[in-house]
Design a protein around this nucleic acid. Structure first.
Lengths: 224, 224
DNA sequence: CGAAGGTTTGAGTCTTCTCAAGAGCGGTGG
DNA sequence: CCACCGCTCTTGAGAAGACTCAAACCTTCG
């Protein structure tokens, strides 16, 4: 991440390590007062916001190394809920202490700005996905995103376990469960991947990449 | 915004005021090196990112008082383009100077975090819109958003001019132009608003609000 | 072992898109 | 000042991708 050793040490001092959390546990709930950011050490977490009528929108799945809670700074209150998907180790970063630290350390302040900015850029990618991509492109994008993020952490980019349900994937991608299920079946028939329940093997990353973005010209060019 | 007078004065010192820009001018283009944030003083700006195949995704319309460019901090390079929709006055905030200033001024640093966080929270709202809402709900949400933002700046919340085309609205909301056009017609028939070309009058804000979120139960509850 | 919930598959429907054509405005130039 | 041109907007008709509803299957877990 481009942090100097001494910065890391300082950060280390304010980190609280929590005992392992289990499937279904909440890190925080929507409208809880905001106190800390959270970093996933191992396991995975989903964040979601209530939509009207009691439904919910899954906002993201968070893998080891990823930061959660940045959207709460503005209102001093969490705008979404965070639920643990499998047994996970999570670190807590009390925000007030982090803020003091970054105020004293320009390099950390810059890092913090970058983290916030990266989150915005990622959301932007999701907007593009939801606004312009069809079901096939959405799922391919999702699978490749997982793959790349796992690779970044030194884990296998082509053989992994889905800690979330088809329902949650569909919700996240703006698709119905049935659509996800059918696409998994189709991708498997096409030799792109091997699906066994929650165990995923990506057999052809190149082909998946070619699906992302411009597979079919079935959507009108929405220029302006 | 909760800034002390002295903070404002300091900010004021680093702001560059640019001459008026005109319809079609770019504030910056995607992949330009990142140097400054921009604040709209008067007029309006749209930001958009290239999608695959040469299309584009409109990311937002920016009205007076709103900040542009936060997504570029992470990569030191703009992730989207910003184009002026009508004659506009824009202020430029050199980011390196802003960063120095916030490092010296905890209250400003906090404000900066809040601005970044707010941007994330707004994107989250858009994800919900694109992921869960139908065409009617999307347009109603869009109109009410404009209305509220104009009100915040002391402008009429129910009588305003659209500086963007139907095409751009559709692109932003993930809908085809024709759908936007049909909805404007229908909203007008239903007495919700009066549309004359780009001149909009909202006649029934309460009814629009009831459309947002839970008008019809025609979408399955995507729970997880 | 049985209930509960997640997944898959099929059939039919529907919202929204696509394609097409005409109308309305606005700008340009003779 | 008016005809012409280009572009945006509107409206209609048909197509289609994804959704909804339904049912069966399979896992998991108490």
């Amino acid at each position: 991440m481009g942090l100097a050793t001494e910065d890391v040490e300082r950060l280390d001092e304010i980190v609280k390590r929590t005992r392992p959390l289990h499937r279904g546990d909440y890190l925080f709930r929507e409208s809880d007062p905001f106190r800390s950011l959270y970093v996933v050490k191992t396991g995975s977490v989903k964040t979601f916001a209530p939509s009207s009528e009691g439904g919910e929108q899954v906002l993201g799945f968070h893998l080891p190394g990823e930061l959660i809670g940045l959207d709460a700074i503005d209102r001093d209150r969490h705008a979404c809920s965070a639920k643990v998907l499998e047994t996970s180790a999570i670190c807590e970063l009390p925000f007030s202490r982090l803020e003091e630290l970054t105020a004293m350390t320009p390099s950390l302040q810059h890092q913090m700005y970058r983290l916030l900015s990266k989150e915005i850029a990622q959301d932007t990618d999701m907007l593009l996905l939801l606004g312009k991509k069809n079901a096939e492109e959405r799922l391919a994008t999702f699978l490749l995103s997982l793959s790349q993020r796992l690779r970044k952490r030194g884990l296998s980019p082509s053989d992994f376990h889905l800690s979330m349900s088809r329902h949650e994937i569909g919700n996240y991608l703006g698709l119905a469960v049935e659509t996800i299920s059918r696409l998994f079946t189709r991708f498997q028939e096409d030799g792109l991947m091997c699906v066994d329940r929650k165990h995923i093997q990506l057999l052809n990353l190149a082909a998946l990449e070619s699906l992302v973005g411009s597979c079919s010209q079935n959507r009108r060019q929405q220029q302006t």
